Simulated assay, not measured.
Amino acid sequence: MVYQQLTRRTLFKLGGGDPEIAHTRTMAGLARLAKVRPAVAVLRRYFGTKDTTSVFGVDFPGVVGLAAGMDKDGHALRAWPALGFGFVEVGTVTRHAQPGNPKPRLFRLTGSDAVINRMGFNNAGADALAERLRATGPIGVPLGISIGKSKVTPVDEAVEDYRHSLRALRDHGDYFAINVSSPNTPGLRGLQDKDALDVLVGELRRESTKPLLVKIAPDLTDDTIAEVLQVCADHSVDGIVATNTTLSRDGLAAADVATGAEAGGLSGRPLADRARAVVSFVHRESGLPVIGVGGIFSADDALRMLDAGASLVQLYTGFIYQGPPLVRRINRAVAGR
């Protein structure tokens, strides 16, 4: 409650209320915090958990992870475990450094507890991330790396783009998420089609023995998800991340309808039911480990996602609105089951 009444209100006013400026300044503050080892240690004792779970051969000291998109370039890696996260996913990173889409490209829908983004994979590139991870070293929790296609790369050359990123980063990640589901890079979602995905996943599977996961969109039909799962089975993919942001605008509060017309992917509370349904379908149809993400705003939301079949959960928009106390509440609820 203190976070919502004081901290969030202050953060949301940064940069004149511009969400991207607020995000940039928050990340800078967390990057500074990450360098203060005594503070990190104190915070980790308060927010952390000691409940270890093993998923796709990796030991996670907690089921709550930070979703990709929050710390794309890994600037604040040591801060996240201090705030209770049991794993961290950086990226989405691309072969080529890119500025992303024109601003403004990030929008809060506060009446709906949602966010729309059309960031466009703004990042410093895979090679730069590899250098940063090499300098940072182990962060005390598993590190996932989300890889995607550069905007300048034609779709028919996507395989080499992903392969370059995986080769550059394979020594630094504990698992890799193949992002073929962002709505903000032209042509990217077409890589979820069975034939294209078959080639991409097959080539990446040959490149690394590290766990590979495929991140899917919530807007896919059950039949299309089933085709994705068949490709994953054919190439021994280790898991699914469900889900990415949605193009749907269902469930928005009336006050947010105008902002909801902005292009981009929507995340947050309106996505909760669909994300949970996709997790349930994937779990039922494939038995693959699933990282459930979408609309988790409470400990109960997280428990329902786990009950639907997720092995782990990730936070993004819920963390923006609820802050570190949400991570602690989920960790305590899971420990108390």
Score class of each variant (00 low, 15 high):
residue 324 P to T: 00
residue 51 D to Y: 06
residue 282 V to S: 02
residue 139 I to F: 05
residue 253 A to P: 13
residue 152 V to F: 00
residue 202 G to N: 06
residue 253 A to G: 08
residue 172 H to S: 14
residue 318 G to V: 13
residue 99 P to M: 04
residue 63 V to W: 11
residue 152 V to T: 09
residue 111 G to L: 02
residue 197 L to M: 01
residue 86 G to N: 10
residue 25 R to I: 02
residue 163 R to P: 03
residue 70 M to R: 10
residue 104 P to F: 01
residue 209 T to R: 13
residue 219 D to G: 14
residue 164 H to A: 15
residue 2 V to Q: 09
residue 163 R to L: 11
residue 64 V to C: 11
residue 195 D to W: 03
residue 307 D to S: 15
residue 75 H to C: 03
residue 140 G to T: 12
residue 183 P to G: 05
residue 276 R to P: 13
residue 42 V to N: 11
residue 298 S to I: 02
residue 114 A to E: 09
residue 152 V to C: 03
residue 51 D to E: 13
residue 302 A to M: 12
residue 169 L to T: 01
residue 125 G to C: 12
residue 244 N to V: 12
residue 18 D to V: 03
residue 219 D to I: 10
residue 125 G to E: 10
residue 92 T to K: 01
residue 183 P to E: 03
residue 14 L to R: 12
residue 267 S to C: 14
residue 70 M to F: 15
residue 241 V to I: 15
residue 180 V to L: 14
residue 167 R to I: 05
residue 260 G to R: 02
residue 267 S to M: 10
residue 95 R to I: 01
residue 229 L to S: 03
residue 286 S to W: 02
residue 86 G to F: 08
residue 103 K to R: 15
residue 90 V to P: 14
residue 170 R to S: 15
residue 235 H to M: 05
residue 113 D to A: 01
residue 49 T to P: 10
residue 42 V to M: 14
residue 168 A to P: 07
residue 63 V to G: 08
residue 260 G to V: 02
residue 32 R to L: 08
residue 251 G to L: 13
residue 162 Y to M: 02
residue 24 T to W: 02
residue 206 R to D: 11
residue 121 F to D: 09
residue 17 G to M: 02
residue 82 A to V: 15
residue 177 A to V: 14
residue 122 N to T: 10
